[in-house]
């Protein structure tokens, strides 16, 4: 068996893990499965593409690749802007849709159905604005470097793995060492108690939307840079994202990342062992197995 599946699995897993961190945070605090989360990955990638394009138009020097990577300064700058824009998009969707259901005390199933609707609308809008043709941040080709042990990776891939690691550590520290992180955990455990403990629950909900969308944007940009950008980019990752969030244990940031890596590795292993057509089934099998054997996941708290 070619050990390269480990590197392929880690890269896919890092993208899934970052997206799953957003899913697990929004699920634990907003208490519904947001099926529009995948669209935030797609929108993040397209927003970065649009901003990078505009920056390249303003200054061609910004598109000149920064050795040894395949992209110029336009991409990191546009990534920062796209993170903010994707966060604002999530806040806008919440303000226009979900907050009114929350105010009315709507049932969870209504929130879930609303998220399906939001997902469709956001994806259709992307196709309308950017077409369904695949797009790329860069067309420059990269040669994979030998890493030893039969593993190879491009500088872009290694950088993205590093970015994912830094992002997850940063979110974990935010959750455990800061006021807003403790407030998020408090709201996740008991929103009513949180409110009488002096926590502004609405502010926490806004923070969670922004943070989840920001991580989705980073995952979308990673996927766009390492594979390609398509309107279905996030939608196709939805099942692995939810499988990772549930396997990691709802509410656990390190759990979601670790579970994302596990799912990525399992998918890559399945491609080698039984063929690429079985890749999508891996997440489904893991999801069902976790729900049957250990519903609270690897790091979830028993209810």
């Amino acid at each position: 068996m070619n050990p390269q599946f480990i590197m392929d699995g880690l890269i896919t897993g890092a993208i899934i893990g970052l997206g799953a961190v957003g899913v697990t945070l929004t699920y634990s605090i907003l208490r519904f499965s947001n099926f529009a989360h995948g669209e935030l990955l797609s929108w993040g990638a397209y927003l970065a593409l649009a901003v990078a394009g505009a920056l390249g138009y303003l200054s061609a020097g910004l598109t000149k690749p920064i050795a040894p990577f395949s992209f110029g300064w336009a991409l990191p700058i546009s990534a920062v802007i796209a993170i903010g824009l994707t966060g604002l998009l999530a806040l806008a969707v919440d303000a226009l849709l979900f907050s009114s259901f929350r105010r009315r005390g709507s049932a969870i199933i209504i929130m879930v159905m609303a998220s399906f609707g939001a997902s469709l609308a956001l994806r259709s809008l992307l196709e309308f604005l950017f077409s369904s043709r695949p797009a790329y941040f860069t067309k420059a080709l990269q040669i994979a470097m030998k890493l030893g042990g039969g593993l190879r990776a491009t500088p872009d891939q290694l950088l993205m793995l590093g970015v994912a690691l830094v992002a997850v550590i940063a979110v974990h520290l935010l959750m455990t060492r800061t006021d807003i992180g403790r407030a998020m955990r408090a709201v996740s455990e008991n929103p009513a108690l949180a409110s009488i403990a002096g926590i502004d629950v609405r502010r926490v909900i806004r923070t969670v939307w922004f943070l989840g969308a920001a991580l989705a944007c980073v995952a979308g940009i990673m996927s766009g840079l390492l594979i390609q950008i398509r309107p279905y980019l996030g939608h196709d990752l939805l099942l692995p994202l939810f499988a990772a969030a549930i396997l990691g244990g709802i509410g656990s940031v390190p759990g979601a990342m670790l579970a994302g890596l596990i799912i990525g590795l399992c998918e890559a292993l399945a491609v080698q062992a039984v063929g690429a057509e079985w890749r999508a089934a891996v997440s489904f099998v893991i999801l069902i197995a976790v729900l049957l054997v250990r519903p609270r996941g690897l790091f979830g708290k028993a209810s």
């Binding site: 403790r182 955990r185 455990e189 002096g198």
Partner: peptide, 16 residues
């Protein structure tokens, strides 16, 4: 109380 958080974290929330 926030059962999944420590005694100190419960108080840190209170004095935030």
């Amino acid at each position: 109380v926030f059962a999944t958080m420590t005694t100190l974290e419960n108080l840190q929330i209170a004095v935030a």
